[in-house]
């Protein structure tokens, strides 16, 4: 049986008094995995430990069965850091050739790999462009190119979509999918939760250095099914006020409803915002009530149901990206 692409066993890392990673246990196989967490949650530390850049103070990290304490393990990893501090005087091709040489490739091979990597990130025609003149998106792609140029089985990407325009982003997503389909393992961190959900098979949620949830977006949703939430209900004007009064009088006795607000419905419609401590139970009971009364709801929306908000909830009430 092949060892997992990445295996973290109780990996912990302190920076002075700060516990940056707290006993992380993780086993990743081929495919794309998204790492989500707020600033300072330990995403970069986890990626650096996984890449062998830093060693865990406790526990261990293994890449395809090789401990990251062995420098050769780094040959199996492509790491694109968040920073993009390059040598600005060099061209993109020269920079990548240098990176290939650091891996141990000889001159001609290093240059060939650099050209291939540039083509893969769609910068084949920018080989002679100096890094000083590269846009943010191009720099992101150069970072990615230096990570994939030696065709590693494990790719660790720190915020790879930051500063990349939507068109290039789409290309990168395609590239990642193709690489993953070829049996490679990709772990990337992002604040773009929508992007994570669209791209990944698997989401890891990191809170204050601890992996608190691992699974698909659906699994994470199910785990959080009965969390407090706000549900927006909308219906046509044809429903009269007394009917709603009947409904709401029933809600008053439901433990699944903690309150409702009928102010500010959308123009031309009637609406109601219900607060529930247990979303799943509330929606089940609401469904029965609506069926019983023969009442037609046009729209039921969990305002706190997006991945962004779910993850924000896991993070202790903080909403990522400043929205909720």
């Amino acid at each position: 049986m092949n060892p997992p692409a990445l295996l973290l066993k109780s990996a912990s890392k302190w920076y002075g008094q700060l516990l940056a990673l707290n006993g992380a246990n993780l086993e990743l196989g081929p495919g794309i995995h998204g790492l989500v967490g707020s600033n300072g949650s330990g995403k970069t530390t986890l990626l650096r430990i996984a890449s062998g850049l830093i060693l865990p103070d406790e526990g261990s990290a293994l890449i395809h069965g090789i401990s990251t304490r062995n420098p050769q393990a780094r040959s199996l990893v492509g790491y694109a850091p968040e920073t993009d501090s390059f040598y600005e005087e060099y061209t993109t091709l020269e920079f990548l050739t240098i990176m290939a040489r650091l891996h141990g490739f000889r001159g001609g091979v290093a240059k060939r790999l650099a050209i291939q990597a540039l083509e893969k990130v769609d910068l084949g025609d920018q080989a002679k462009k100096r890094l000083r003149g590269c846009s943010r998106g191009m720099r992101q792609r150069v970072k990615l190119a230096q990570a994939i140029l030696h065709d590693p089985p494990l790719l660790l990407l720190d915020e790879p979509f930051s500063g990349v325009d939507p068109v290039v982003r789409g290309d990168l997503v395609g590239l990642f999918r193709t690489m993953a389909a070829g049996g490679r393992t990709i772990l990337f961190s992002s604040h773009e939760l929508d992007e994570v959900e669209r791209l990944t098979d698997d989401i890891l949620v990191l809170v204050r250095g601890r992996i608190v949830a691992v699974g698909t977006a659906m699994e994470i949703r199910q785990r959080l099914d009965n969390h407090p939430c706000r549900v927006s209900l909308e219906w046509a004007d044809s429903h009269d006020q007394p009917t709603l009064n009947v409904l709401s009088s029933e809600w008053a006795s439901w433990p699944e409803v903690s309150g409702w607000d009928r102010s500010n419905p959308p123009i031309g419609r009637r609406g109601c915002l219900v607060r529930s401590p247990r979303e799943g139970d509330f929606l089940t009971r609401l469904h029965g009530q609506v069926m019983r009364l023969g009442w037609a709801l046009d729209r039921v929306e969990n305002l706190d149901g997006s991945t962004r908000v779910l993850v924000g909830r896991i993070l202790g009430g903080k909403m990522l990206g400043g929205t909720s």
Partner: peptide, 25 residues
């Protein structure tokens, strides 16, 4: 298309020892 460039040709040669990186640096 981009996909046409995605055929990886893994390196089968022998890599130099890390000490050669000193000269590269």
């Amino acid at each position: 298309t981009l996909g046409d460039f995605l055929e990886y040709r893994p390196f089968h040669g022998k890599l130099r020892r890390p000490s050669y990186a000193i000269w590269a640096i």
